[in-house]
């Protein structure tokens, strides 16, 4: 009983790492441009495919490459490629609607999401079948107390910790971080005091999309089997997480991601026949939040000005 609880806790933390990293991307974009990028989940799955293709290609050419270098290289390349896709998406489908009613970016990003998803399905070799992420970790791991933390789980934890620290440092110490904060506080005032807003927006989209890429990479090494259409639901879950935590707050996104993961994992484990209804439970939590606290846990109450 006690052991299963710990095991479920571990599973939910693994899932929570992914959700919160996706949610950070949503919250960054929303804070900056008041726009929800519905194709964020497709960045995520795009990165899983990119990393798979890269690792397969490299291990095909140099079989005895050292694993850790390979992992880091694949991760960074997936981040860079997905980041550039994010920048392109922002330039082509979000910037034209900066002054338009919010219906427009909702629909245009969904359209881009469909296009990315279908491009993967049609042009990746056997893209419509489930894919297997190459196993790049040696079996085994670290024993902590009664249960075993396998190598890929340790990697996920390390990557997440590094990301959180880097995000913290980015916003507290760097120039671009304070520019992003300034733009989220007041878009026009930020451009008035000489911040190159377009450049900062592009950098934010690069950052957000590469965060999605990290989550996608984690998805690959944790579940090992993935499909082209997993992006949509992961994106919606990440968006839900950022709403639960409070849209616009980075720390809230982290909390929301873990809440979503806890609900999902524990509903699947402890409710009878729960694994079939896990998504029903997590989305019901989102609906409850939207009914009773639309601004989320840490979000500011939205006061409309005329």
């Amino acid at each position: 009983m006690y052991l299963t609880f710990l095991l479920q806790l571990k599973n939910s933390i693994m899932l929570g790492c992914q959700y919160s990293i996706i949610a950070i991307g949503f919250t960054l974009f929303f804070g900056m441009l008041n726009v929800v990028v519905f194709c964020h989940g497709d960045f995520y799955i795009l990165a899983t495919f990119t990393a798979t293709a890269l690792i397969t290609a490299i291990t095909g050419i140099f079989p005895p490459l050292i694993n850790s270098i390979l992992i880091i290289f694949a991760l960074i390349m997936a981040m860079v490629i997905t980041g550039f896709v994010g920048v392109i998406v922002e330039r082509t489908t979000i910037r034209p609607f900066r002054k338009a009613p919010p219906v427009m970016p909702i629909l245009s990003t969904i359209a881009v999401g469909i296009i990315i998803e279908q491009l993967i399905r049609l042009f990746y070799p056997a893209g419509s079948n489930p894919q297997v992420f190459p196993s790049i970790f040696r079996p085994g791991g670290v024993n902590i107390g009664p249960f075993l933390l396998s190598n890929n789980e340790v990697t996920i934890l390390i990557i997440t910790a590094v990301i959180f620290i880097l995000m913290f440092l980015l916003f507290k110490t760097t120039r671009i971080g304070s520019q992003i904060v300034a733009i989220s506080q007041d878009f026009e005032a930020a451009s008035m005091i000489g911040i190159n807003v377009d450049r900062a927006v592009s950098i934010t989209f690069f950052l957000g999309a590469s965060l999605a890429a990290i989550a996608g990479f984690m998805n690959g090494i944790y579940y090992t089997v993935f499909r082209y259409d997993m992006g949509a639901i992961a994106g919606i879950k990440g968006f839900s997480a950022s709403v639960v935590g409070g849209l616009g707050s980075v720390f809230g996104a982290v909390i929301g991601g873990f809440i979503m993961a806890f609900v999902e994992t524990f509903a699947a484990a402890y409710v009878p026949n729960g694994s079939a209804y896990r998504d029903v439970f997590s989305f019901s939590v989102v609906l409850l939040f939207l009914i009773f606290r639309p601004s989320g846990i840490l979000g500011e109450k939205i006061i409309e000005k005329v």
Partner: peptide
């Protein structure tokens, strides 16, 4: 739930509703 929400939150309500009914 859409009475208290608008724009993105409203879209999320409808998306969540669609997924819940699909999975049920």
């Amino acid at each position: 739930p859409t009475l208290k929400t608008k724009e993105y939150h409203l879209s999320l309500v409808t998306i969540a509703f669609a997924y819940v009914s699909y999975f049920l």
